[in-house]
């Protein structure tokens, strides 16, 4: 598990047009320099947007990766939902830090106990 390096690869990919070209030519070769597990390599080379979200990749990084693959916005959102459905709640990272329970459970909880304006006070 090396969420840091998964995100670092995507961060550099998002910024670097040369790395984007290399990735398009040979995805596996592009990710090889990074310290990644087989699962992570599969998610990055697939690509598997849902699995990357489940692994904990920040959406602000992931959405650019989805755009690189010409994935439409609505499809991008659905792929993440499918990833949670298939793999379970986000494993680590900012979406897991307060025990985020997944899209459906989160929405149900908000509906059953809507936040009040003065909850913070």
């Amino acid at each position: 598990m090396s969420l840091y390096y998964v995100q670092k690869f995507l961060y550099e990919l998002n910024r670097d047009e040369n790395l984007q070209s290399a990735y398009h030519q040979d995805r596996l070769a592009a990710v090889t320099p990074y310290q990644l597990t087989e699962e992570e390599i599969g998610a990055l080379t697939g690509p598997d947007i849902g699995l990357l979200y489940h692994l904990g990749v920040n959406g602000q990084i992931l959405m650019h990766f989805a755009a690189l693959h010409q994935i439409a916005w609505a499809d991008y959102l659905q792929l993440m939902r499918d990833g949670i459905e298939e793999h379970g709640p986000v494993r680590e990272g900012v979406y897991a830090m307060t025990g985020y329970e997944g899209t459906d459970a989160h929405a149900q909880r908000l509906q059953s106990h809507p936040p009040q304006p003065n909850d913070q006070e």
């Binding site: 979200y53 920040n58 959406g59 602000q60 992931l62 959405m63 959102l77 993440m80 939902r81 949670i84 979406y95 899209t103 989160h106 929405a107 809507p114 936040p115 009040q116 304006p117």
Partner: peptide, 15 residues
């Protein structure tokens, strides 16, 4: 943003 919950907005909290 950029998550499965994208589009959800807590208007009361915002106001």
């Amino acid at each position: 943003p950029a998550t499965p919950d994208s589009g959800k907005i807590n208007e009361e909290w915002d106001r």
